[in-house]
């Protein structure tokens, strides 16, 4: 395949993934069924993982699948079940003045898109020549220059585990 073909293929892939992600993301925030929203979120996560592969970050993609789709989503479904949200339709998921969110979001979007187009214009992203980030290189970074954030993260996770137990424990 020619390099240009690859670019075309990538653009097509990106288009499909992006469309899927935006569509399901909208469903996450608009669905009136909590479980549907959660499943839509799975699709968005999966789309993100696919994007990471497109961006030559396999390890992050794998982690995304493992942690987000594997663990976080299970947590969410448990949360939904334990709080006994109605598994069917629930018209009462939105705030009374939910509509106020639309202009705010649109305003934010407008500002950001304007800034991005203004700032980065048509900077190319050379996906074809990008070497896949080796997991070894990432681990070198994590465990030597970025070890302090890594420890901080470990500590946060520990605190979160203890905190979650303390909070959710029935006394």
């Amino acid at each position: 395949m020619l390099a240009s073909d690859i670019v075309v293929a990538q653009n097509v892939a990106f288009g499909i993934i992006a469309a899927v992600m935006v569509l399901f993301a909208l469903r996450v925030v608009s669905s009136s069924n909590v479980v549907h929203a959660a499943l839509s979120l799975v699709m968005v996560m999966a789309g993100a993982a696919a994007l990471y592969i497109l961006l030559a970050a396999e390890f992050v993609a794998v982690t995304q699948v493992l942690v987000y789709i594997g663990a976080v989503m299970v947590l969410f479904l448990f949360g939904v079940m334990l709080t006994r949200a109605k598994l069917g339709r629930d018209a009462d998921l939105n705030n009374k003045n939910w509509a106020a969110g639309i202009p705010v979001a649109l305003l934010l979007l407008g500002v950001m898109v304007y800034v991005l187009i203004d700032g980065l214009g048509d900077d190319k992203l050379d996906v074809t020549s990008g070497t896949a980030a080796s997991t070894a290189a990432i681990s070198d970074l994590i465990f030597s220059p970025y070890i302090l954030p890594f420890w901080a993260l470990s500590f946060v996770l520990l605190a979160a585990v203890i905190g979650a137990i303390v909070l959710a424990r029935k006394d």
Binding site: N11, F14, V34, A85, N95, A100, I102
Partner: peptide, 29 residues
């Protein structure tokens, strides 16, 4: 491909997320 493709997709998802935070009443949502 353009950098902006990814960045604007990110911006769109971000704004959808912001809308969700603002509009939703259910804490899980």
């Amino acid at each position: 491909m353009l950098v902006n493709q990814f960045l604007i997709l990110g911006a769109v998802l971000f704004c959808i997320g912001v809308y969700g935070v603002l509009a939703r009443k259910n804490a899980v949502m």
